[in-house]
């Protein structure tokens, strides 16, 4: 059991053990799977979550995405934090370590 996580740029996010971020081949879509939960994801969320590996910090994720999409890092960082906070509140993301 972890305490409530507040996502900041230094946090290293990961998926809890019971949460799977998986590509469904038949449907050709990425989803988050958890007990009796299925979360469909928009393309931006998929980009972010593909970088969540329990090693990258939130700041690193935002940095890589800003390079990939040639977008301002501040804006991306805000989006990444917001999305991960939402998923964390629902129990789909936790802090590594």
């Amino acid at each position: 059991m972890t305490d409530i996580l507040k996502i900041n740029e230094n946090i290293i996010p990961k998926f809890p053990k019971h949460v799977r971020f998986r590509f469904n081949k038949a449907r050709k879509e990425w989803v988050i799977l958890a007990p009796e939960r299925l979360v469909k994801l928009d393309p931006i969320a998929v980009e972010i979550l593909q970088l969540v590996n329990g090693e990258r910090a939130v700041r690193t994720i935002a940095n890589e995405l800003s390079k990939k999409f040639n977008a301002p890092e501040d804006t991306i960082l805000a989006d990444v934090k917001e999305m991960l906070q939402d998923l964390s509140d629902k129990g789909f993301i936790e802090e590594n370590g």
Binding site: M1, D3, E36, D89
Partner: peptide, 8 residues
């Protein structure tokens, strides 16, 4: 218990 325990 938000963030600690999911209650359905």
């Amino acid at each position: 218990l938000k963030g600690k325990l999911v209650i359905d």
